[in-house]
Every structure is written in structure tokens, then in C-alpha cells.
Amino acid sequence: MSWRRWCKPGHPAQLVLGLSLWGIWFIAMYAGLSVVCQFVAPAPQDGAANWLSYALFGLTLIVLALLLLLARRGWRYSQSVQQDSRPQRFIAYVSTVLYLMAALATLAGALPVLVLPPCI
């Protein structure tokens, strides 16, 4: 089973790829926050405006962009695929919405970074 097949928009792996990316982002945010706060915590008086918050939000924007790109690709595929390829169309449609939902979850989860100091 080659990786190229897995990456195609109609492949069932797409059903879990977007939320898996969200999961990896989630772990990176939570674990990264914990480790950095343990060893090189930014000064509390900086509030939310510090290098760690910017780094976490930067990571969020990268993941967000990736998810939106994947959603766009999935949507285009779902519109182009022939009517008789119903399972692939179904997978492409469902995975597109799941990419968008993963993007929404990523953005919503990262918003507190902009207003709360990280290590208090």
C-alpha cells in the first residue's frame, strides 16, 4: 500500500488525517507549553505578549493553513469526481468538512494564547 494512494483525496485515510493533524497540534501545544514553562518560562509581567505565546500562535497558523489547503483540495476533488464513484465522493465530502472542523477546533483552541499569560 503506497503512501501516494493514502494521500489521494478519495482515500479513507483522509477521514482521519485532518483530525489527526489537530491531535498532533493539540499535543504539541500542551506538551510544548508544559516543557517550556518548566525550563525557560517567559517573565510573568510580559502577560500574553511574549515569545512563547507568539510561537504557539505561529504554530497554530501553520496548522490552520495546512488544514484549509487540504479542505480546498478535498472540496475540488469532491466536485470533480464522477457521479458513479459514490464512495470516493462521499469520502471526499466528509473529509472536507472534517478538515474545516479541525481548522475551527485549532483556531478556537489557540485563541486563549492571545489573551492569557502562558505559565501562570
Binding site: M29, Y30, L33, S34, C37, G109, P112, V113, L116, P117, P118, C119, I120
Partner: peptide
């Protein structure tokens, strides 16, 4: 738990 993690 740090408040940011709680908000998260």
C-alpha cells in the same frame, strides 16, 4: 494547572 492550559 496553568490557566492557559485550563482555558485550552
Amino acid at each position: 494547572i496553568p490557566q492557559l492550559a485550563q482555558a485550552f
